[in-house]
């Protein structure tokens, strides 16, 4: 895990410009594929920040899921609806309150939490409207990010954080440790967690340990409200 003598910051810059998505398998991004594997056949799923609907389309096709989506960008919504998916234009901050408690088996928030205005409120809403919530986000405690900031003094760029500071949508970045602390604070139970290295390979590390917070480029967490069984 040495930086092999090169400037780590330059590495990140190149990766950011290339904007290569995390290792893709077939048509589905690797992190989405891992999320899809956690979802049971025939579930009712709400995908918040569903983009072009890749996960929803996959789940409908492969797992007979009754899927709904929320997406901020008009082009994303139109593409989804144009492909027969049930998607509304909206965002995690303002459009979750209307949903009834437990209305979905699974609520997915993939790579979106860090772009919400009130992430704490959003996490609370996720476990309210879903029996389970699956949340993935980039880990700001990842060693390359830490090292990049230390060595260059500039805001880090990476696979997951491809925007320069002045135009990033990511206004509430956190580390895995921060996220775990938030879950503890608001009484949300972490049922399962996966950490992804920079090639998108999953491995299981204790999310409360130092290693996960250092080695993981992304985290995927399965949450449920504390009152749930």
């Amino acid at each position: 895990m040495a930086a092999s003598g090169e400037s780590a910051a330059l590495d990140f810059g190149a990766a950011g410009k290339a904007a290569a998505p995390t290792g893709t398998v077939g048509e589905l991004r690797q992190d989405l594929r891992l999320i899809a594997e956690m979802i049971e056949t025939g579930s009712r799923v709400l995908d918040i920040g569903c983009g072009d609907g890749a996960l929803l389309a996959y789940l409908a096709r492969e797992k007979n899921v009754d899927g709904r989506g929320i997406e901020l960008s008009q082009s994303g919504v139109n593409a989804c609806v144009g492909h027969g998916l049930s998607v509304i234009q909206g965002d995690a901050d303002s459009d979750l309150e209307a949903y009834p408690p437990g209305g979905f088996d699974v609520v997915v928030l993939s790579q979106t939490l860090q772009a919400t205005r009130r992430p704490r409120r959003v996490v609370e809403e996720l476990v309210r409207i879903g029996r389970r919530a699956i949340v993935s986000f980039p880990n700001f405690g990842f060693w390359q990010i830490r090292l990049g900031l230390l060595l260059t003094g500039r805001m880090p760029l990476s696979h997951c954080l491809a925007h320069p500071w002045y135009e990033t949508p990511n206004i509430h970045l956190c580390t895995i440790r921060d996220f775990v602390a938030l879950c503890d604070e608001i009484g949300v139970r972490i049922d399962r967690s996966l950490t992804l290295d920079r090639h998108g390979q999953p491995y299981s590390l204790d999310p409360r340990g130092n290693l996960a917070n250092l080695l993981a480029e992304q985290g995927i967490f399965v949450l449920c409200g504390s009152a749930s069984p």
Binding site: D66, R68, Q74, V77, N78, C80, V81, L85, S86, V87, I88, Q89, G90, D95, E97, A98, Y99, P100, G103
Partner: peptide
């Protein structure tokens, strides 16, 4: 329209919503 969408969400209905520019 968004009010209708929220009501439909509250009723757990199957709903799509598109605003056209």
């Amino acid at each position: 329209s968004r009010e209708v969408v929220h009501a439909l969400n509250a009723a757990a209905a199957n709903v799509s919503f598109v605003e056209i520019a």
